[in-house]
């Protein structure tokens, strides 16, 4: 369960990033956040993951204020993947488990099976710069999923990928959500992606980000949705409220 209670964020230099943000995402629900660049989407995810504190208001995760390092149920995937260039694929995926003090044998077992399920086996020794964008993104997913999070926060995870890997990974995320009942919060600036993946779509205004509209999207949750008339109808609806901002 994720809850934003009238969150305001003003940076030290006076930049107003977020204004009176309130919405909630139920356990097992998926929610997309869409808004123009610079409207405070990354700031909002940083607040939910406990990296930043709101200036006023509260970010509540599973009933508690978001505060590191006690955020074991939350995994964050940063914009541009957040991988460490000095760690190879295996080390990048293992790092979260290592920090939590999981024994090496168990780490190896978890990482090996994740890499296999993401088609990354054989690339353990590669460094991020040797991988394509799609592969880097899968490494970032593997790292987040290694922690078996109940809540997954993602900052424009697919925006720098080509159309094909993008659609593949959208399907991957959808299956992940359906099979594991993960609570997902996905920042994107693609309307189609927001509609395909979010049961709920939060539309933000330009900076300072305010909630313009929360669009309900009950039909999301199947691969076939992408080709249905309801999907295109919903995209039109979201586009209208984005353009109205």
């Amino acid at each position: 369960m994720i809850e934003a209670r009238s969150i305001n964020k003003v940076y030290e230099d006076g930049t107003e990033a977020l204004k009176d943000i309130s919405f909630s995402v139920k356990r097992g629900e998926s929610c997309s956040i869409i808004g123009p660049s610079g409207c405070g989407k990354t700031t909002l995810l940083f607040i939910f993951s406990g990296l930043l504190r709101p200036t006023s208001g509260e970010a509540i995760i599973n009933g508690e204020p978001a505060r590191l390092p006690d955020m074991k149920d939350v995994a964050l995937i940063l914009q541009d993947y957040g991988l460490f260039p000095w760690k190879n694929v295996f080390e990048n995926v293992a790092i979260g488990l290592e920090i939590r003090g999981i024994p090496g044998k168990e780490i190896k077992r978890t990482v090996d099976s994740l890499l296999k399920s993401l088609n990354l086996n054989g690339f353990e020794k590669y460094y991020p710069k040797q991988l394509s964008g799609g592969m880097r993104q899968r490494v970032a997913f593997a790292r987040a999923l290694a922690l078996r999070p109940g809540i997954l926060l993602m900052d424009e995870p697919l925006s720098s990928l080509d159309a094909l890997s993008r659609e593949n990974l959208q399907n991957f995320l959808l299956e992940l959500w359906i099979e594991n009942k993960i609570t997902m919060l996905l920042v994107t600036h693609s309307i189609e992606e927001a509609v395909f993946l979010g049961k709920k779509i939060v539309v933000l205004s330009p900076r300072p980000g305010r909630v313009v509209k929360i669009v309900k999207n009950p039909d999301a949750g199947s691969i076939e949705y992408r080709d249905k008339e309801e999907f295109f109808e919903k995209c039109r609806e979201v586009r209208q409220s984005v353009e109205a901002t």
Binding site: S49, P69, M71, L78, G82, W86
Partner: peptide, 27 residues
């Protein structure tokens, strides 16, 4: 800070940050 945030979001403490980010990045 990007790398520091990336590590902190995984539950890292200060020592982890030096060991896994600052030291290797400066090496």
């Amino acid at each position: 800070d990007y790398y520091v945030y990336s590590l902190l979001s995984l539950g890292a403490n200060k020592r982890d940050v030096y060991r896994h980010v600052i030291f290797p990045a400066c090496l």
